[in-house]
Measured scan of single mutants.
Amino acid sequence: MQRVNMIMAESPGLITICLLGYLLSAECTVFLDHENANKILNRPKRYNSGKLEEFVQGNLERECMEEKCSFEEAREVFENTERTTEFWKQYVDGDQCESNPCLNGGSCKDDINSYECWCPFGFEGKNCELDVTCNIKNGRCEQFCKNSADNKVVCSCTEGYRLAENQKSCEPAVPFPCGRVSVSQTSKLTRAETVFPDVDYVNSTEAETILDNITQSTQSFNDFTRVVGGEDAKPGQFPWQVVLNGKVDAFCGGSIVNEKWIVTAAHCVETGVKITVVAGEHNIEETEHTEQKRNVIRIIPHHNYNAAINKYNHDIALLELDEPLVLNSYVTPICIADKEYTNIFLKFGSGYVSGWGRVFHKGRSALVLQYLRVPLVDRATCLRSTKFTIYNNMFCAGFHEGGRDSCQGDSGGPHVTEVEGTSFLTGIISWGEECAMKGKYGIYTKVSRYVNWIKEKTKLT
């Protein structure tokens, strides 16, 4: 034993070699072989497995989906700052455009905790909710729209109204504003409101030439003092309507412009014939205590009207009353817009006519005020429907199939267009061939041609 100890002390290297040989010859039971080890760690190889990531292109799944990435790591994937920024906006807080917040056709661009709407022409605001041009839906104005110097929408209202708090709607500024039905039992019968379409306001006024200088022999019209197929109006439903009495009662109609003036057809009036105007009328054979009678003290036909040349060209006249009318729910003026808007309103496509005229061709006159909704007829169809001249200051309205029309005794009465609950004068009943005849239409004086003249002559002093 002493000898062994001496050998170990003198030859430590020998001992180490012996131990190493023993270990190498022993069977290893701690580690699995290569094949079995792979069965336990069965993990798919990654895209760049075996390579240094710093030297390969980034992978979106590896960089940002398996674990949260930084902007720089995302930049490695896209290799483009702009594309990385677009991805980053949604990656950080989701897609803010998912709810489609942009209105009126706006395009949404996502941002971090926010979004941006790219608005089409005519709109602005956070969600493109603000109209900035009158060309689109009248700028959301209830009545009139004008573009300011910086191309912003400025709404306005006709006389007797003021802008509401929203700067879009119009509200009454006087007790009985024009064009409004205020009798409670008839307010439910107000005709369907007309909503502004998209309009090209630059070209809204037709490029028409008034044929002022045409000389033409007097034409022989049949029954051209021209509501057939209409309905009984309720008291106060058309408070701007008046009836004219002269040699015979209810020979023509008219509309209240203001307390002192009536507008009617020029062919209705004769110099030297006494005319009485009755406002607030409903049943011409009954006294309903809503009527107001006034005498006409002055007749002003349009300066281009000449019955000797043509009885229905420039067929418009103004009547001055001896005493002002007292405005109330049964006696209310009709609204008159400017030339541009009167023309736009007419193009809405349908209007209402009213009167006490004959209820059928050569038949009896109506006792109760009649009204009828009539569609506008395109000019080409209008011209083809008659052998008589249709001037540019006239328009056609009615039904091709016949059966409904204005008729004798309705002449001078109103053709009105309702705009968001307020009625505007767009025409004056003038003439036609018979009444409600198939293929024939009622012919009306186009008020847009005469609004400046009306307003100039009827100013209240």
Rank of each mutant, 00 (worst) to 15 (best):
V181G: 12
E79Q: 15
V248Q: 08
G246V: 03
S25G: 09
E82L: 04
N258F: 02
P414V: 07
W431F: 14
E320L: 04
F121I: 05
T342F: 00
L372S: 14
N36C: 04
Y371E: 06
R46Y: 13
F221A: 12
N343H: 09
I262A: 03
L327A: 03
F196T: 12
E285H: 11
V181H: 08
K137H: 10
N304Q: 14
P375A: 14
E171A: 11
Y22D: 01
A149C: 08
N393E: 08
L319S: 00
F224A: 11
T417K: 01
N306V: 07
L20C: 05
K89A: 10
Y444P: 00
N203Q: 06
L23M: 11
E54Y: 06
L376M: 13
S169K: 08
E79M: 14
N147Q: 13
F399L: 14
V326W: 06
D198N: 10
V92Q: 15
Y161S: 01
L189F: 14
K347Q: 13
S255I: 07
K438S: 13
C435R: 04
L41K: 06
W240E: 00
T445Q: 05
L369T: 14
V368R: 12
E61K: 08
I334H: 00
G403K: 11
R226W: 07
V154S: 11
V153P: 15
D200A: 13
T225H: 12
V263D: 00
H303P: 10
K152S: 12
Y91Q: 15
K274L: 04
I210W: 13
P235K: 09
L372I: 10
V243W: 11
C119F: 01
K109D: 06
C117K: 02
K51N: 12
F399P: 12
R180W: 04
V419K: 05
K459H: 12
T461R: 08
V92N: 07
C155S: 01
G402D: 09
S354M: 13
H282F: 08
E27F: 02
S148K: 10
I40R: 08
K109R: 12
I210K: 06
L130M: 14
S49D: 15
I112F: 11
C134Q: 03
E418Y: 11
K293E: 13
T190Y: 07
T225D: 12
I210F: 08
Q237V: 06
V56L: 06
G402V: 13
A317E: 01
T81K: 14
V228T: 12
Y330N: 05
G253P: 07
F123Y: 12
D322I: 00
G412H: 05
T133E: 15
Q2F: 09
W118L: 13
N452A: 14
A192C: 04
T215Q: 06
G427S: 01
G349V: 02
E320M: 04
V326G: 05
K260L: 08
D198S: 09
F87M: 13
M8Q: 12
S148C: 07
S187M: 12
D315K: 00
Q2Y: 13
T218R: 06
T81V: 10
C335V: 00
S99Y: 12
I454D: 01
E98L: 14
G272H: 03
K234Q: 07
S430C: 05
N313C: 06
L23P: 01
G363S: 13
D322C: 00
V199F: 14
C252A: 01
K438N: 05
N38K: 13
D33W: 08
Y330L: 05
C128N: 02
G50W: 06
D95Q: 14
T84L: 06
G179M: 00
C119R: 02
S187K: 09
Q2T: 08
I7L: 10
